[in-house]
Design a protein around this nucleic acid. Structure first.
Lengths: 192, 192
DNA sequence: TTGACAGGTGTACGTTCGTTCACCTATAAT
DNA sequence: ATTATAGGTGAACGAACGTACACCTGTCAA
């Protein structure tokens, strides 16, 4: 890939993340240091070839996947984590990947160690979908005895039990008053 | 918030996620079922009041934070995970939150259980930044003896050791040939 | 009964959009 | 020495943009 094209892609990516839209051709001329929009037209043609930007059904310019998503370089064992551009396994945006139903989902911070053995630690964030009906072994956000907790959901017949992923926590069998706020669809942790 | 405004916001959110841009006023008229762009103008004014869309420095329409991000409803203990619209703690987009340097980051799938006690399981995805220099207790993606692994980074004087977060795995003290591909900045897990 | 107003239509307007054309270089290949 | 070609300027174009204005209608309060 041409160096100039790649630099332009970088700038577009930054612009996209900051402004949540692509610049117009006139703005690009400014950004890229051109005096004429025509120079932009030619550069954009190359950006399209490089799949850094794409064109809508209606012909409008939208960011290509390379601009908005991160490359997935395989897995740790087989992985070859070099900046290789040739053939990357996949690429994805975390929002699209982790959230199925934005309208019915929310984020909540984890407190307590009840799900530690499931790899969910205090201060992690979990994404909860309140639109899903819990199935067995789903992790649910539930209110039991006026307290919210994360637990494995388990239903046998019509007996519901809430089970922690930590030996030190007891399995709870709620009396009548069980409220399930939603099902955990993903969990995230930030180190830096 | 007006019901009609909220519905319009929902539609805009879906459009945004699908097209990675906001529709023009003419397109909105189509989407919302109006015959006149002027009706859209008035609706957009309300959407701005509701912070569902915003206006650029240059006056262009961009999605508001409510359209692109998920609400954070506090933490599990104190949390009140109801659809309360009044006062939510925060709201964020996962991409912005988890990725600091998109240009120098990539995603890799975890294989093996060496970081199990750190809450990183097989099939989890980790985001690795190859631009960071590892500090002690950072989790790094390293190549040792021709194999890629995730390990805690530890350096005393100029002795580097790579430590697993799992008793069953030995602490490695690499011979000359240590390659650190990058530092793990976040980890994600998808359940559904 | 009247008036105000929210919500919608249709037309018109100036601005900006992306595209296109003619033209001007350097650089590199013939 | 000559010719393509890549990369840029500048001006012009029609189309689409968002906005504004006049107007219509139903609803609700005074």
């Amino acid at each position: 890939m041409d160096k100039k094209v790649k630099q332009a892609g970088d700038k577009l990516g930054r612009y996209w993340r900051q402004h949540k839209r692509l610049p117009s051709f006139a703005e690009m001329a400014d950004i890229f240091g051109y005096a004429s929009k025509n120079a932009v037209t030619k550069l954009v043609a190359k950006l399209k070839d490089a799949h850094l930007v794409e064109q809508d059904a209606s012909g409008r310019l939208v960011p290509g996947s390379l601009l908005t998503s991160l490359p997935v370089l395989g897995n740790v064992q087989a992985g070859f984590p070099s900046p290789a551009e040739e053939e990357l396994v996949d690429s994805l945006t975390l929002d699209d990947y982790l959230i199925n139903n934005p309208q019915s989902s929310f984020i909540i911070e984890v407190a307590g160690e009840s799900m530690l053995d499931a790899g969910i630690q205090p201060k992690d964030l979990v994404i909860v979908d309140r639109g899903l009906t819990p199935k067995n072994n789903d992790i649910v956000l539930a209110q039991i005895d006026n307290e919210w907790t994360l637990k494995y959901f388990n239903k046998k017949g019509n007996k519901v039990s809430l089970q922690a992923a930590n030996d030190k926590y007891p399995t709870l069998i709620p009396q009548s008053e069980l409220t399930v706020a939603g099902v955990v669809v993903s969990s995230i942790r930030k180190y830096k």
